[in-house]
Amino acid sequence: MAEGIKLEQKHGKSRVRVARVWRNVNGGSSDVIVEWKVGISLLSDCLPAYASGDNSAIVATDTMKNTVYVKAKECSEVVAVEDFAIVLGKHFTSFYPQVSGAIIKIIEKPWERVVVDGRPHEHGFKLGSEKRTTKVTVKKCGSLEVESGLEEFALLKTTKSGFERFVRDKYTILPDTRERMLATEISAFWRYDLKSVAEISEKSISFSEIHSEVKNLLASTFFGPANGGVYSPSVQNTLFLMGKAVLNRFSRVASIHLRMPNIHFLPVNLRGRDNQIIVQFADDVYTPTDEPHGTIEATLTRASSKL
């Protein structure tokens, strides 16, 4: 409180880009690279900076940027993006007495190892599609929140999708169908049941392994078996089944939020001026469009979770 005014504030550094290469991993000859875009927000006691221009308690945002590079250098072994975020959060809350909490957000660029002549290349990589994300909140008291995620995870199936028996009124022109394309670009964010930093050291969690398995499980639930697939009566139902599958598989995941825009492929029918048919749609030629699109999202949480 200053001059009768209540102030809630945080400050930090955004879009800190860092790449880290580990050479000859596990005694072999293969390199590993990650590229991260780091965002830092500090919750700190620096009210005088706002009220009277006294900057003596402010951690400079340039210092935060430099800390990212120092901590990346100190990671002598390959670390998951979640682990690196926890390292940063622990540093800021323990190194600076005035900092009560740190919120670390990181987006990992999807560099993937290339395969040449059927073999993984030792130091060759290509840019993938979906991005890996994390948001970690560390408090000085030792409390911890970890959210992992993926964005721009594009999936499509050419059949086994429909949408019917929805609300109809005078504005409705969409016909019922049991045969349509289903395409989406998934954003998924799941929160772990972690409560404190101490749990990380007590119980080893392979964030990278869980991330890979969640991604595969979302895809396999979306598509169904390789032979025959699975029918989707709506994006809503498919979303629910995907989220439920993740909660059923991973006991450490307390909740998951899924956002699945319905990216449309519109049937093409063309007629000439004299009404002759130029293109007759037969589940074959479409106009892809991502604007406008339907937006479906939901959060699934375990009934026993307090999150």
Rank of each mutant, 00 (worst) to 15 (best):
P267M: 06
E77W: 14
I263Y: 03
G12Q: 06
V146M: 11
K170M: 00
T299Y: 13
N227C: 03
K37Y: 01
L42W: 14
D284H: 15
A303C: 05
L194M: 09
F84Y: 14
D169L: 01
R178N: 10
I5F: 05
A154Y: 09
T295D: 12
T287S: 14
L127D: 10
D169I: 01
S304T: 09
C141S: 15
E77A: 13
V16Q: 01
N262D: 07
E130Q: 13
V32A: 12
F166P: 01
A254W: 07
E112F: 09
T133Y: 14
D45G: 09
V32H: 13
V87L: 04
I40V: 13
A85C: 02
K13L: 00
N66G: 06
S52K: 10
F250E: 04
S251Q: 13
K37P: 01
R132F: 15
G53C: 06
E130I: 06
N237W: 12
A298W: 10
P288Q: 01
Q280Y: 06
T63K: 08
V59H: 15
V34T: 15
T133Q: 10
I200C: 08
T238G: 02
A282I: 06
E145H: 07
P233Q: 05
S201D: 02
L247R: 06
S305E: 09
R113V: 04
T134E: 03
P120T: 01
P225R: 09
G243T: 07
Q9V: 00
V138C: 15
D83N: 09
R252N: 07
F250D: 03
Q236Y: 13
F189Y: 14
K170T: 02
K73A: 11
R168Q: 01
S14C: 04
E147R: 08
I200N: 04
I103K: 13
V18K: 10
G228F: 08
T184F: 07
E152N: 12
V246F: 08
N66A: 10
V167Q: 05
N66M: 08
H293G: 00
S30T: 09
R180S: 04
H11T: 00
S187V: 14
S29Q: 07
